[in-house]
């Protein structure tokens, strides 16, 4: 196993409120990793910083030793479902096709091959029949499948997924996890922000417990302990533990 994604000394703050504090992570390729932590633990921020959407205070993120900009075509991203406007006038097929835009580059238009890829991806998530629907007509689970299809056609080696199981039905959740396991079987790496502690052990083989700092990181069976979870979900922020002045 080689390391595919590395975070070193990463700190991120909004104004002067630290959101991520001295994060060090080494993530090998070919694993299914869950990032778990309470609200405001910086899970989404970690992903967004990795994708260059947020500028860190200090530290760095690298992919096989290269910065994100050099390798963005090999990285797929599924944002939170709530981050877009589902009333937008666009069809399921169009949304999926957006996954190819990074490969296509500025100005050029999607080719037949891109469209074929979109069709295949839609088929894979069981949404081909809905391809001409406007996205506002979809249920939560269907929306998430569309987002997943969009990530699939990015044809990436490493995927970041922000809460893909939030607000989806049981059937969709099962379908998504089997797809993720399939990706892993193809030696791809999948990093998932997750919030349901009950399913962590079934879904992931690696786990990162995050609460502004990394509480624990490693294979699930080592990390998923009562002690670690307790530490992660401790009510008060860890930043103020040594009596520094609070805002």
């Amino acid at each position: 196993m080689k390391d595919t994604f590395k975070v070193e000394d990463l700190s991120v703050a909004y104004d002067r409120q630290p959101v991520l504090w001295d994060i060090d992570l080494t993530i090998p390729s070919g694993i299914l990793l869950g990032i778990v932590g309470p609200n405001g633990a910086g899970k989404s921020t970690l992903i967004k910083t990795a994708l260059g959407l947020i500028k860190p205070l200090s530290g760095s993120v690298s992919f096989n030793g290269k910065p994100y900009k050099k390798v963005h075509k090999t990285i797929g991203y599924v944002p939170q479902r709530g981050s877009v406007d589902w009333d937008f006038p666009t069809t399921v097929f169009d949304v999926v096709l957006m996954g190819r835009y990074g490969h296509i580059g500025w100005v050029r238009r999607p080719s037949k091959k891109d469209k074929e890829a979109a069709r295949l991806a839609l088929d894979k998530v069981g949404m081909l029949a809905y391809k001409s629907r406007q996205i506002s007509e979809l249920s939560g689970g269907q929306q998430q499948r569309v987002f997943l299809a969009r990530a699939l056609i990015q044809d990436a080696d490493l995927y970041f997924m922000d809460e893909p199981f939030a607000g989806v039905d049981v059937k969709t959740e099962k379908a998504i996890i089997s797809l993720l396991k399939e990706l892993k079987a193809q030696d791809k790496t999948v990093i998932v922000v997750h919030h349901d502690l009950n399913t962590v052990k079934d879904y992931f083989d690696w786990l990162t417990l995050l609460n502004i700092k990394v509480i624990a990181h490693g294979p699930v069976h080592e990390v998923y302990t009562k002690e670690n979870l307790k530490k992660t979900y401790q009510a008060d922020a860890l930043m103020t533990m040594d009596g520094t002045s609070d805002v």
Partner: peptide, 8 residues
């Protein structure tokens, strides 16, 4: 449609 994906 999707600000975050565009950036990524």
């Amino acid at each position: 449609f999707d600000h975050a994906l565009a950036g990524a």
